[in-house]
Design a protein around this nucleic acid. Sequence first.
RNA 1: GGCCCUAUCGUCUAACGGUUAGGACAACGGGUUUUCAAUCCGUUAAUCGCAGUUCGAUUCUGCGUAGGGUCACCA
Length: 427
Amino acid sequence: MSDIKVVTRFAPSPTGFMHVGGVRTALYAWLLARKNQGTFILRIEDTDKEREVEGSIEHIKESLKWLGLNWDDFCIQSERLDIYKKYADRLLEKGFAYSDGGALRFKIIEKKRTQWHDLVWGDLSAGEEALEDFILIKSDGYPTYNFAHIVDDIEMGVTHVVRGQEFISSTPKFLSVYEALGITPPFFVTTPPILGEKGTKKLSKRDGAKDILDYKKEGYLPETMINYLAFLGFNPGGEREVYTPEELIKVFDLSKIQRSGAKWSDDKLNWMNKEHMKLLPLKEIEKNIFEFLSEDMRNPKLVPIIFERISKWGEVKDMVERGELDFFFNLPSVPKEKLVYKNSTPEKTTSNLKLAVQALQNIDEDNFTAENVKSALMLIAETLPKRGELLHPVRYALSGLDNSPDPFIIAYILGKNETLSRLQKAF
RNA sequence: GGCCCUAUCGUCUAACGGUUAGGACAACGGGUUUUCAAUCCGUUAAUCGCAGUUCGAUUCUGCGUAGGGUCACCA
């Protein structure tokens, strides 16, 4: 493998959006090409004009671009009909094809058992019943997949055919075409299926498989999708699981691709996304979070408390919708009884709040950081039977929420004036 | 149904015939804490079944079972 130039391709038909199964096939082909400094081709297989969906090609390109799966060459099968014709004529001349009701059919000369090797599945074989005369060129003039992909792979010098396991059964047919043409077939790299989260069925569009670009909309990182998808059916060994695309290229190894189907797990995907989010520089994190916030909410001070509560950018929107950030922008309503910590009393609560105000007044506006607020408040809190007798009312007075970030960071975000104002309103 | 293929914790997986069968996600419990989040520590949990080969099988073989793929003028 080291002495040949590796050429791989991703060959989708433009029948709609790309889902994760297609993406992973593309990913493995891309990884293989990049690992070997080879070529990765994007080829649109649009020979079924009935099933074609307008806009699919752009959609596929956009998906691959988002994921960073850059291609070196691009072609569309419907623009290459003369080439298929040329190959068809050759088969016709040699007696390997015949006309049949306006179509051109491949003629199986010898029905025999077929054996071949797959780089993932090892040695495979199929009985002679797998071979039957099949259509090369349809009566509408377009070639079938069975024929067109072989011609293209030959013409483009594809060395490794990476595709899903649904093609294993027809491989004997493909091999007989190669044989008729007198051409050595490429290496076959067959990928395992991805199964739906609930059932055991192969993940399909009908089965609820999502458009890969939906994951973009929800705020997943492309490197997460690459990492997760690569590991759904592949594992380089070792215990590490978080890899950047570049690192993945280094450790990718065909022989370590799984053969059995793997179930999709949103839980693991979310965990992995958070891991990749943590790898990002703060600036980048801020930018992504702000995209889901209205302009008036884009306060950099808010970024840390939001970041630790999300596992994908889209959850920023959820936080906003649940009103979890409201108190930073609007005065919360604070029922007096909610201020009281556990077994404490309203009287103690009020006096503690007054102590807090006194302590915070002594901090300069310029030094009103979460750390300074914390040390000032802790000084008082430590003198009480329970720290909560001070910290809870302060937190509640500032947020008006049962669950919120800690009082120190809230005070810092609100600033000295607003903090003091809210505390004073509470007693 | 015929043909082809697959089979390790609930899930993703590791273990060139010899390991207390490892890791991660999830779940559960605990530490830290004023609540949530984050974080740290820990616990449960698997070799589909039956034979065979072998001193020894997760690993090799056969059968069964379960699951997947495919049997188009779709890809």
